[in-house]
């Protein structure tokens, strides 16, 4: 017991020191958009680990509420190319451009099903 709590304390302390603790309350599970197309992933973890702070996106580009952006009519690739939403950084200079590496964020219906623990995408396993 004591060793375990010691470890936890140590990890917490290290995280604090590394400045990760500021983002301690970000959602662990990736967000998967399903509009206007299915299966587009955003991982807080990946972005926080790159050193991005919450206020770099919230609430300037995205509201706090998950998937709120997909209610907007302009939540399409064209907007990203114009620097909106993800396109603010994914413009080819800060991060890879929105019109490249499509399948990095577009995990598709299969990736979505897998993220949700579904078995779709496996053609086998009959009966």
């Amino acid at each position: 017991m004591t060793i375990r709590s010691l470890c936890i304390t140590a990890v917490a302390a290290l995280s604090m020191a590394a400045g990760v603790a500021v983002a301690a309350s970000y959602p662990e599970a990736p967000i998967v958009y399903d509009k206007p197309v299915k299966g587009v992933i955003f991982s807080h973890k990946t972005h926080v680990e790159k050193g991005l702070a919450c206020d770099m996106c919230h609430n300037r580009l995205f509201e706090q509420q998950a998937k709120k952006a997909q209610e907007n009519k302009d939540f399409v690739m064209e907007s990203l190319y114009q620097g909106k939403y993800c396109g603010a950084c994914h413009n080819g200079s800060l991060a890879f451009a929105s019109n490249t590496r499509c399948a990095t964020c577009h995990i598709g219906v299969k990736g979505d099903a897998r993220a949700k623990g579904g078995a779709k995408g496996e053609a086998k396993g009959h009966h």
Partner: peptide
């Protein structure tokens, strides 16, 4: 062996199984 085996896709990476009903 799936016809798409050499394509290396997730769906057809493995040998197919069949046992009669």
């Amino acid at each position: 062996l799936p016809v798409y085996y050499d394509l290396g896709v997730n769906e057809f990476k493995e040998m197919l199984h069949y046992s009669p009903s």
